[in-house]
Every structure is written in structure tokens, then in C-alpha cells.
């Protein structure tokens, strides 16, 4: 499937995938994340159950300490 991940086109060999599976495949391993799917915030506990489908727009933001 093809999705937009962080404003870039991204192709996966299968689909749909859950948010957790995409985090895993793309090696996003940070503990502090904000995930938005088609503009909607996805709570952490829903990562394993939220499907990402063809054409979806997924934003994954790493939060790093420092201010």
C-alpha cells in the first residue's frame, strides 16, 4: 500500500498495517511520540489496534527533551 508518512510518499509491500507495525517497520523506537492519522491524534494504547490504509496520511513526531 502507498501512504503519506511525514509528508513523504511511502510504499509498503502489504497493507493495511497497524500503527504499531509501521512504527516497527520504519524503526521508530523513541518512547515519546505523537502520532496523527489523517489529522486525528492516535492515543498510545490504540497503536496496536489502529489500521493504516491505502492513501492515509500518517504523521509520526519524535519528542526529545530540551527546552
Amino acid at each position: 500500500m502507498k501512504i503519506t508518512l511525514n509528508n513523504r510518499k511511502e510504499t509498503f509491500d502489504t497493507g493495511p498495517l497497524t500503527v504499531s507495525e509501521i512504527l516497527d517497520r520504519k524503526s521508530f523506537r523513541f518512547k515519546m511520540l505523537v502520532v496523527k492519522l489523517n489529522g486525528e491524534l492516535i492515543p498510545k494504547e490504540n497503536y496496536p489496534s489502529t489500521p493504516v490504509k491505502e492513501g492515509d496520511n500518517l504523521d509520526i513526531i519524535h519528542l526529545i527533551s530540551g527546552g
Binding site: K31, M32, L33, V34, L63, I64, S65, G67
Partner: peptide, 10 residues
């Protein structure tokens, strides 16, 4: 400062 604060606030 802290990532935990950034996360809850976002």
C-alpha cells in the same frame, strides 16, 4: 524541557 511534558501537552 522534558519530553514527557511535551507529550502530554501535545
Amino acid at each position: 524541557d522534558k519530553a514527557t511534558e511535551k507529550e502530554w501537552f501535545a
